Amino acid sequence: MESSMMAFVLRLKCRGAGIMDARKLHGLACSLFERNADHSSQVKPFAVWPLRRDSMGRDEMLILRCNWLRDSALPFDPEGLSTVRLGARTCSVVGFECHEESFDSLAEGPTVGEAVLTFLSPVFFAANGRRSVAPDPRLILGGYRRRWNEALPPGSPYWIDEELWRATHQATELHSFDLRTVMRDGGHGHEVSGFVGTARLRVLSDEVKETFSRLVRFASYCGTGARTTYGFGATTVTFPGSWDG
């Protein structure tokens, strides 16, 4: 049986719920994906996109996309889920869609030399007590590589070791970008800045294109940068002239 991860969308009915509160969103996600023993772990096996309004303009209808990054059963039954808590409010679950993708398909899909990343919610990076909003390919891909390795089942042949990672980020450049800085609730009583828009990455060595390809294909699942469990860094990816994902 193939190892796989999962992306799913919940349609929620929740009157009067603000959708920009990152801490409430994080709390909702933790209630779905974590048990008491999991909450203190630094490794979070999930990512969420920001809540958004239903495209039909109905204020009480919200859309939540979540990504489960483990080759294991979900810690809840989405088809049996009737309500979720968003802060102090109870939201009814009125719809559910799921997409499952194997690690094999991400790792062994078409090899690409370029990728356009679209950042739908603010991206920033946090390391050594400092924040950065620079679209540095090493930071972008480094987050993908860390979460990719964390998500892999034990003994996977797709592990990206230090030597391969070093060769990959050294051969990758930021080809072009169309980004702007925005502020968003950070979930701890203050706003956090990050960039949204598009960035085009290009890999200059054929020897690491396979690794580059699997990392950018993983982006729409793991998200980009810090606080992806709070709705930051929601990402989609397209591949100019070759393959879209």
Score class of each variant (00 low, 15 high):
57 G>H: 04
154 P>A: 07
122 P>K: 05
60 E>S: 11
235 T>W: 03
99 H>T: 14
74 L>S: 06
74 L>E: 05
221 Y>S: 08
200 R>D: 07
8 F>E: 00
127 A>S: 15
175 H>C: 08
73 A>K: 14
135 P>V: 01
208 V>P: 05
81 L>F: 04
202 R>E: 12
184 R>T: 02
108 E>A: 14
157 P>D: 04
71 D>A: 11
80 G>N: 08
239 F>I: 13
143 G>I: 08
117 L>K: 05
93 V>L: 08
177 F>K: 11
150 E>K: 05
133 V>P: 00
239 F>Y: 14
123 V>Q: 01
6 M>E: 08
13 K>Q: 14
104 D>R: 15
167 A>C: 03
2 E>Q: 13
232 F>T: 04
83 T>P: 00
111 T>E: 13
109 G>H: 06
222 C>V: 13
70 R>C: 10
70 R>Y: 05
134 A>M: 07
234 A>V: 02
134 A>W: 06
115 A>T: 11
66 C>T: 00
43 V>S: 13
203 V>S: 10
76 F>T: 10
237 V>H: 06
86 L>I: 15
85 R>G: 08
105 S>T: 14
59 D>M: 07
120 L>K: 14
19 I>A: 08
58 R>P: 00
120 L>W: 04
140 I>T: 07
179 L>Q: 04
136 D>T: 08
180 R>W: 11
228 T>Y: 01
47 A>D: 00
23 R>Y: 10
